[in-house]
Simulated assay, not measured.
Amino acid sequence: MGMWELVVILIVGLVVLGPERLPVAIRTVSRWIRTVKSVANSVKAEVNEELRVHELHANLKKAEQQNMNDLAPELQESVDELKKAAESVRHSYQSDSTKQTSKKD
């Protein structure tokens, strides 16, 4: 929206709502806009993550079809990334089970 459109909206709001209720209405609308933006950003991040996981999964299938030999660099990179993720999960699981075992003693 341009500057003149905002001025027209402000004048109409001032006439309709009055000077007492206009600041409250502006705060409410700005809160709604912030909420909508945060929801949109979280959905966007989630979709991007799902696309990345799908791409990694497709690359892993290609690597399996090639029997993990003579992989293209992007396939090898995906396989390495998946191995690192699996190791981090395994380490966190092992440390959690170690903590639980030590709490029982």
Rank of each mutant, 00 (worst) to 15 (best):
M1A: 06
W4H: 07
L6R: 10
V7N: 09
V8M: 10
L10G: 02
V12C: 02
V12K: 11
G13R: 08
G13C: 04
L14V: 08
V15N: 08
V15R: 05
V15D: 11
G18M: 02
P19E: 11
E20C: 06
R21G: 07
R21N: 11
R21S: 06
L22M: 11
L22D: 03
V24L: 11
V24P: 00
A25H: 14
I26D: 03
I26F: 01
W32G: 06
T35H: 01
T35P: 02
V36K: 14
V36F: 12
K37L: 12
S38N: 14
S38L: 11
S38A: 14
V39H: 05
A40V: 02
N41D: 04
N41R: 13
S42N: 13
S42P: 02
V43D: 08
K44Y: 01
K44P: 00
K44S: 09
A45M: 04
A45V: 03
E46P: 04
E46S: 14
L51T: 08
R52Y: 00
R52V: 02
V53F: 07
H54I: 09
H54R: 08
L56D: 04
H57D: 06
H57M: 12
A58V: 13
L60C: 12
K62N: 06
A63W: 04
Q66C: 09
Q66V: 00
Q66W: 00
N67V: 03
M68W: 09
M68I: 06
N69F: 07
N69R: 15
D70V: 07
L71K: 07
L71N: 07
A72D: 13
P73K: 11
E74L: 09
E74S: 08
L75N: 10
L75F: 01
L75D: 13
L75A: 07
E77V: 03
D80C: 10
D80Q: 07
D80L: 13
E81V: 01
L82N: 08
K83W: 03
K83M: 01
K83D: 03
K84F: 05
A85G: 12
A85M: 07
A86K: 03
E87Q: 13
R90A: 12
S92Y: 00
S92R: 13
Y93K: 06
S95N: 04
S97Q: 11
T98C: 05
T98H: 09
T98M: 13
T98G: 03
Q100T: 02
T101P: 00
T101Q: 09
T101Y: 09
K104M: 08
D105P: 00
